[in-house]
């Protein structure tokens, strides 16, 4: 359909905010961030180009290395556990259980809560003096120890526990939608073929749900890179720097340590990581869309 000039102008006017945001905020801000990371800026941005020196310093920075180490542990455990638990919950709900709506609500409600709330609740639950450890001991398990949150080598796993609690419901919702989308005649055919239920899930249903798994995994992964609030609220990066994460490293160096060169180098590293994950996924989705 040919568009008249007025329609065309109206349409472009409607897109102005989006274009402005696109060019000024997204492209402009991103380029500036990348540029600052190539200078020796400290408190204020300057234009003294120093190549990749900030990146060199970044990867010699203990705190950054710890942050990266932590986010890898967190990312792998969080994504795989949330996918596993979320999928199992969806399968359980899909068995035509009673009170399905109530059960689904219970699984999903944590996702409506903020990371700050999540972090604070779990900080309280995992508190060794009065939390779960205390409960176990008062029940007679004298030797019970569950003090992960105050031990540097285990604090990051506490973030995983809280994160999985918050996000499994999301995976469940995505997976349940996928399971409900499976043609019922496939189930009938499998019953006539005499396949045990677990076998149908493993050999037929899971391979069919690649799109649901990919969507959930990508959503969870982008959440991983963004992880900030949870660490701040639950452990504030501690004990010491034991549960520091990259997003927190950037924020601290931007606003407290006044080292914006290093901070933007860290942010740019995060950007590259995200694009490395998301670009293939978006490409895959676009290809799939074309094939359909």
């Amino acid at each position: 359909m040919r568009l008249s000039l007025t329609s065309r102008l109206s349409a472009i006017s409607a897109l102005l905010p989006a274009l402005l945001v696109m060019f000024v905020v997204y492209i402009g801000a991103t380029s500036w961030t990348v540029w600052i990371s190539l200078t020796n800026s400290r408190m204020l941005p300057n234009n003294n180009f120093i190549g990749l020196r900030q990146y060199e310093m970044l990867f010699n920075n203990d705190r950054w290395i710890t942050s990266v180490h932590n986010i890898v542990i967190y990312g792998v455990l969080f994504v795989s556990l949330a996918l596993l638990i979320g999928f199992l919950l969806a399968v359980a709900i899909d068995q035509r259980v009673r009170a399905e709506d109530t059960i689904r609500s219970i699984y999903l409600y944590p996702y409506s809560m903020s990371f700050v709330v999540t972090g604070l609740v779990w900080q309280w639950l995992l508190n060794p003096t009065l939390g779960i450890q205390h409960v176990l001991r008062s029940w007679g398990f004298e030797g019970a120890t569950f003090d992960w949150i105050v031990r540097p080598e285990t604090a990051i796993y506490c973030l995983v526990i809280a994160g999985v609690w918050q996000a499994s419901g999301l995976v469940m919702a995505i997976m349940l939608a996928g399971l409900r989308g499976v043609d019922e005649e496939i189930w009938k055919a499998a019953r006539v073929d005499g396949l045990p239920k677990w076998r149908v899930y493993v050999s037929i249903i899971i391979p069919m749900m690649d799109a649901s798994f990919a969507t959930a995994a990508v959503l969870l992964s982008t959440g991983v890179v963004r992880l900030y609030d949870l660490s701040v609220a639950m452990t504030n990066g501690g004990p010491g720097i034991a549960s520091e994460v990259p997003a927190k490293f950037v924020m601290d160096h931007l606003f407290e340590r006044a080292n914006i060169g290093l901070a933007t180098a860290a942010a740019t590293t995060m950007l590259i990581t995200v694009i490395a994950v998301v670009a293939p996924y978006l490409y895959w989705r676009a290809r799939k869309g074309e094939m359909r």
Partner: peptide, 29 residues
């Protein structure tokens, strides 16, 4: 609904941006 030139590119770019962590934009903003 309005098939504008470049609409798909703009939309695709916005989708990529949706995944990018705030830390990348915050300081310039």
């Amino acid at each position: 609904l309005w098939r504008l030139p470049g609409a798909n590119i703009l939309f695709g770019a916005m989708m990529v941006v949706a995944f990018i962590p705030y830390q990348v934009f915050i300081y310039p903003l």
